[in-house]
Amino acid sequence: MSGLLSAEGLRVVFPGRRGAPAARAVDGVDLEIGAGEIVALVGESGCGKSTLARALLGLVRPTEGAVSFGGARLGYASRALKEYRRRVQLVLQDPSGSLNPRHTVYDAVAEGLRIHGYEGDERAAVAEALARAGLRPPERFFLRYPHELSGGQRQRVVIAGALVLGPELIVADEPVASLDASVRGEILALLLRLRDELGLSALVVTHDLGLAWNIADRVAVMYLGRIVETGSVESVLTAPKHPYTQALLSVLPESEEPPVVLSGEPPDPSRIPGGCRFHARCHVLATGRAGAVADRCRGETLPILSGAASDQAACHWASAGG
Results as ranks from 00 to 15, higher is better:
6 S>V: 15
304 I>L: 02
319 S>T: 15
220 A>K: 02
194 L>S: 04
212 A>C: 09
304 I>W: 00
147 H>E: 06
258 P>H: 11
62 P>M: 05
126 V>Y: 02
27 D>A: 12
312 Q>H: 11
109 V>D: 06
161 G>M: 05
68 S>T: 15
171 V>I: 08
304 I>Q: 00
92 L>A: 08
152 G>P: 05
67 V>Q: 00
57 L>W: 06
135 L>Y: 07
66 A>Y: 04
72 A>W: 08
39 V>R: 05
146 P>T: 11
88 V>E: 01
92 L>P: 09
278 F>G: 09
99 L>T: 04
25 A>R: 06
249 L>P: 10
95 P>D: 00
243 P>W: 02
54 R>Y: 13
301 T>H: 09
128 E>P: 13
113 L>T: 04
142 F>M: 03
222 M>V: 11
35 A>V: 15
292 A>T: 14
299 G>K: 15
19 G>A: 13
124 A>M: 05
289 R>Q: 08
22 A>N: 10
11 R>P: 15
25 A>T: 13
53 A>K: 03
300 E>C: 08
181 A>G: 09
81 L>F: 01
193 R>E: 13
7 A>L: 14
1 M>Y: 14
24 R>E: 14
285 L>A: 07
8 E>H: 15
227 I>D: 00
221 V>E: 00
141 F>T: 14
250 S>I: 14
294 A>P: 06
83 E>W: 07
77 A>V: 14
86 R>N: 03
118 Y>V: 05
21 P>S: 14
118 Y>A: 14
300 E>Y: 06
135 L>E: 09
287 T>L: 06
226 R>T: 08
35 A>I: 15
125 A>Q: 10
209 L>R: 02
123 R>H: 12
103 H>A: 13
170 I>S: 04
201 S>Q: 04
241 K>I: 12
17 R>G: 15
108 A>E: 04
199 G>L: 05
252 L>D: 07
31 L>C: 13
233 V>A: 07
126 V>K: 03
159 I>D: 07
191 L>M: 11
292 A>G: 11
230 T>W: 00
172 A>P: 05
106 Y>C: 09
8 E>K: 15
265 E>P: 15
163 L>K: 06
61 R>D: 10
65 G>H: 02
87 R>V: 04
223 Y>V: 05
292 A>C: 12
214 N>G: 11
43 G>Q: 10
294 A>S: 07
100 N>Y: 03
307 G>H: 00
36 G>K: 08
285 L>R: 07
108 A>W: 01
199 G>M: 10
154 R>S: 10
80 A>C: 07
43 G>R: 12
289 R>D: 11
198 L>I: 14
126 V>M: 03
252 L>M: 10
221 V>C: 00
17 R>A: 15
300 E>G: 08
158 V>Y: 05
58 G>F: 07
85 R>G: 04
160 A>M: 03
243 P>G: 03
124 A>P: 12
32 E>Y: 09
17 R>S: 15
234 E>C: 06
294 A>N: 01
10 L>C: 14
206 T>L: 09
113 L>D: 04
162 A>G: 05
200 L>P: 11
123 R>V: 10
84 Y>K: 03
196 D>Q: 14
135 L>N: 13
285 L>T: 06
178 S>P: 10
264 G>N: 07
305 L>Y: 07
294 A>G: 00
154 R>I: 10
99 L>G: 03
169 L>E: 01
52 L>E: 03
242 H>Q: 04
280 A>M: 13
234 E>G: 08
92 L>G: 09
